[in-house]
Design a binder for these strands. Structure first.
Lengths: 144, 144
DNA sequence: TTTCTTATAACCAATATGGTTACAACAAGT
DNA sequence: ACTTGTTGTAACCATATTGGTTATAAGAAA
């Protein structure tokens, strides 16, 4: 991976739209703002639904929040869209040589350090609520 | 990307080996501990060399450190192996609709937050020197 | 019943990844 | 000089992820 999937940024974009104009929240309208295919939007909304963040009006169309804006953090979205496998951001090469003292012990040392680094990042994401983010967004929109 | 490439973990493994037994530091021996192809090792060492962290004895074989162990951090290795593109961990979907107020402003808000999160992670990596890591490693090796 | 919508399957092209084989160039020892 | 062990690359390859597309079944309202 060169980068964490844009599913995450799209999820943030999507939820911002839903928060600001819940009336026009069909995958088609949202796709118009994100500028991608409606199916992509539905797939992401499907993941947000699975995570219990939103509900979808089947048949009639549209998505609504299941939590307050200040109860949803960027970390919630990050986890919901599953951009990282097994909750481990850093990959570790498989089966280093157990007969080599370094090979036998490097994994646990490495993993410990990486979990710390990853956790520092996730804590930052956890500190930003959608409430805050949408506020900053509307601020910028007004400032135009 | 589901995970950050194992090139990073291999780089840490490789430098630990070089630090602990500089005498046996050919790509073949290292590949034996990492349990991969020597070419993979050489490619990574090539990146470490480009970053000015190590030197290579052409022809005769072997790699040596160009800096002290306490002058090399995990962040140095992370940057050296280029596991992330353009120094931006988080991807952002391209060209959201500029005619939509949200589409026009979401990118700058998102990017700001992501740079903060990414920076928190990198700071953690910057705080770990190879010196520390190798110490922990030898500790574990002795504790056998 | 018609219409708009969601959910999902089945593809696809582009790219990253880790691996492999092959070969030129280099430096030492003999 | 020649042989040997090594590095540096190029050229491939299989696999997986990504973002996208088309097509279709099914739900809910007018």
């Amino acid at each position: 991976m060169k980068k964490i999937s844009s599913r995450f940024s799209m999820a943030v974009h999507i939820l911002s739209l839903i928060a600001l104009s819940p009336s026009s929240s069909t995958s088609d309208v949202i796709a118009g703002s994100v500028q991608t295919n409606p199916v992509i939007i539905r797939r992401i909304i499907g993941q947000l639904k699975k995570a219990g963040l939103v509900g979808v009006r089947a048949g009639v169309g549209g998505t609504y929040l299941l939590k307050e804006l200040d109860e949803i953090t960027l970390l919630d979205l990050y986890k919901a869209v599953e951009v990282v496998e097994d909750d481990e951001l850093f990959n570790f090469h498989d089966h280093p040589n157990p007969k080599c003292p370094v090979g036998a012990n490097i994994e646990s040392v490495f993993r410990t350090k990486m979990l710390q680094a990853q956790s520092a990042m996730e804590q930052e994401l956890a500190q930003v609520t959608l409430d805050q983010l949408v506020s900053e967004l509307t601020e910028k929109m007004a400032h135009k």
